[in-house]
Each structure stands twice: as structure tokens, then as C-alpha cells.
Write a protein that binds this DNA or RNA. Structure first.
Lengths: 204, 204
DNA sequence: CCACATACTAAGCGGTTGCTTAGGCCCTAA
DNA sequence: TTAGGGCCTAAGCAACCGCTTAGTATGTGG
């Protein structure tokens, strides 16, 4: 199996809930194109061709090209948030390690989706942008509470809680920029490395 | 003075060596537009209008829109590299702290230039891309040597030198994504915060 | 005075863009 | 059998894209 085919299979997994199948194929094609060339450099004809349909078919399932971006961004942000809220550990240090591992490795494994999520925000219409920013606030506050809990329990030594939260999120998010599948590092190994680095940063 | 005017003044500083003045104004207008809306979303008419000239004037000073991007990317990468090579400290810990402070605060203060440098690489033609990638390799190896020197001197405890180097660079670069002038944090305070966080990460 | 280079603009060309219109195929159910 | 709705295509529209061409104003050297 080629790397490209593996990439598309991962996208299939991310968008498994989207129906009908033609609409899902369109979303997957759009996500791959937006991630690879950027939203503005991608044409509706590119997306339709990749999905194996005519240019007009895009508008059967989506209002506009921007609507396609919004669906990718909205669902992608939800998946990213799930990586943090899905953590079951309760002890502050183990909890933070698990969250960073899940969040950073998601940005590697699903880096195509993650790139659209993290780097195409400004192409959204104001009302869509606002909705996504709200999800981002949830992500930020989830991590900040983890830092605060660790400080309260005496497990972390952090002079600036908001600054540390910012750095933790920033480190994980930037994985989507530099990660390349088939390279030296796997999503798994990135998660392990980053969990360790973050705990050091937090003075655990 | 407005924030927008301050932003343009900072761009003036970055591009001070570019002549003639009309070519410099064009570069500044292009850098601001590319940073704000992205390369592909920016039209040559936008750039010319911002520079106070006609659309055709772009082609007096530059071969193409992509040439404009290349000049911004090339000079911007040089400035970023200067932030690291300009460090005078010799003791490994102080040297790393100074480098991280300079590099991260540059990404905040000159975040418009930095955004083009870090997020518009893929829009470059292959030969231009290759030239810029070479500069990025220099940046990476400069930081890696600082990490290695610290490990050799027993000042850092790092299980994975390349992984740590990656994380340090990643943290600083991502500042260009989230930084907003007029926000809670100044370039100066980001530099101080990040120097501390990085030293902890490296086990100093 | 003229010859000439530099720096610019007005106009527009060929191609591409997001999106719409009009119509056709196919499945389902009365 | 046929009416209707969901899903899709062929064709194309108006607007916009990067870039070129032809021509103009200005300054300088001889």
C-alpha cells in the first residue's frame, strides 16, 4: 500500500460519520487539498476531480467552498478536543502526560486534518470563525485546568500558568506543521517525547 | 500612532536595505498582505494599491508575484538566522537562553515577516524553495550544536538531542502563529518566558 | 537642443475562478 | 405505469486572476 493511500485511509477514519458517501468523499478530497496546497490555492474543480465527480457536484452537498472548509474545521476541532477530554487518568502528572501524548500524536497522525484546523482559520467567514474560536477556547481552558490542578497538588512548579499552557499547546499544535509521514519519527514516538518534554517544562 | 502604523514601521526596519524606495514599499506591502491573508489570497492589485502604485508597477521591480514572495522569504530567513548567530555568550546555558530569547522574540516582534517565512514556504518555486530550505538547515544545525555543546559540558540532560532541538525550534517558530501585538504579552516577555521554559526542557 | 534610459500608467489579453442553470438518470412507491 | 424526489452532469456566466503591451512623464549627459 502506498503512503498516499494510507493518508486517505486516515482521512476516511476522521470523517467516518459524514453521510452520504459522496459528501464524505468530497470532504476527504477537500481536506487533502486544503492541507497540501492551502485553501485559497485549491479550486472547487480540484476537489471535484479528486472525489471523482463533476465541479457542480460540490454544490449538491455543500453551500460553498467555504462551507466545505467550515465542516472540516468544525469536525477537526471537535476531534482535537476529544483527544484532551478523552483522557481517563486522574493523577495530575499522569493526566498531563496522557493528554499531551494524545494531543501531539493526533497532530502527527492526522496532520492533514490538523493543518487545515490550525492554519486555515482566517479563511472562514466571521460567524464560522467565531464558532471555531469557541472550540479553541475550550481546548485552551482544558489544558489550563490540567496545569492548575498540577500546581494545586504541588506536582508542578510553574511561575506563569497561562504562559505554560500557551507553550504546551503551541508545542503540540506545531507538530502539524513539521510532521511528515515516513520520516524518522512516528506519531507514537512524538507523543512519548513530548509528554516527557512537557513534564520537564512544568517542573514535574 | 496607530497599531497599523507601528506594524508598517517594523516592516520598514526589516527591509531597510532594499532599494529603490518604490521596490521597498512594494515588498513591505506584499509582506503585510501575505502575512494577513496568505500568499494565494493576495492579488498583485492588492499589493500595488497598498504601495500606492498601479498594478503594472509590480513588474518593473519584480519578475513575478512569486519573486516578491521569494525575496521576503530569503531576507526573512537571513534575519531569523542572524538572531541565532548574533549571540555573543559562550557558556552553554547562557548561550542557549540568549539564543532562544532572541529567536522567539523576533518571531513576535516581526511576526508579519515571520508568518510569511514560516507558513508560505510551499508557495515557492522548487528552485527558490531549495535555497530557502538550505537556510533552514543552517538554523536547525545552529540550534542543534548549542544543544550538543550543553550536553558535552554536562550542563544539559537530554536523552534525544535531535528531538530536543526540534522542540526548541518548534516552540519559537509557533510564536509567529499565535502572537498578536497589543495583547497581554510583549516580544520581550515572550523571550524571557521561553528562555526559561527551554532551559527546563533541556534539564539545565 | 536632442538622445536616451528609468520609472511609471492605462488598457487589456487569455485563462481561471466560484458558482448557477437546465436538464437527465435512477430508485422508490402508489 | 408513472409521478416524484435525490443525485448527478454539461455547459456556461460574470468576475477576477497574473501578467503584457504600448505609450507617457521625468531627469540626465552631451
Amino acid at each position: 500500500m502506498t503512503t498516499a493511500a494510507q493518508e486517505f485511509e486516515l482521512l476516511e477514519h476522521t470523517w467516518r460519520d459524514v453521510t452520504p458517501p459522496a459528501a464524505r468523499r468530497m470532504l476527504i478530497a477537500a481536506a487533502a487539498a486544503f492541507a497540501g496546497r492551502g485553501y485559497h490555492a485549491t479550486t472547487t474543480r480540484d476537489i471535484a476531480a479528486q472525489a471523482g465527480m463533476s465541479p457542480a457536484a460540490v454544490y449538491i452537498h455543500y453551500r460553498s467552498k467555504e462551507d466545505l472548509l467550515f465542516q472540516i474545521s468544525r469536525i477537526g476541532h471537535r476531534r482535537a478536543l476529544e483527544m484532551l477530554t478523552g483522557v481517563t487518568e486522574t493523577e495530575p502528572v499522569a493526566r498531563m502526560a496522557a493528554a499531551v501524548k494524545a494531543f501531539s500524536s493526533w497532530h502527527a497522525e492526522f496532520h492533514l486534518t490538523a493543518r487545515v484546523v490550525q492554519y486555515e482559520l482566517t479563511a472562514l467567514k466571521p460567524e464560522h470563525h467565531a464558532e471555531v474560536v469557541e472550540l479553541r477556547r475550550e481546548i485552551e481552558s482544558t489544558v489550563r485546568e490540567m496545569v492548575e490542578d498540577g500546581v494545586a497538588a504541588g506536582a508542578f512548579k510553574v511561575p506563569d500558568v497561562r504562559g505554560a499552557t500557551l507553550a504546551v499547546l503551541s508545542l503540540c499544535i506545531d507538530v502539524a506543521r513539521w510532521y511528515q509521514p515516513g520520516g524518522r519519527r512516528t506519531p507514537e514516538s512524538i507523543g512519548t517525547l513530548y509528554a516527557d518534554l512537557v513534564l520537564r517544562m512544568l517542573g514535574a
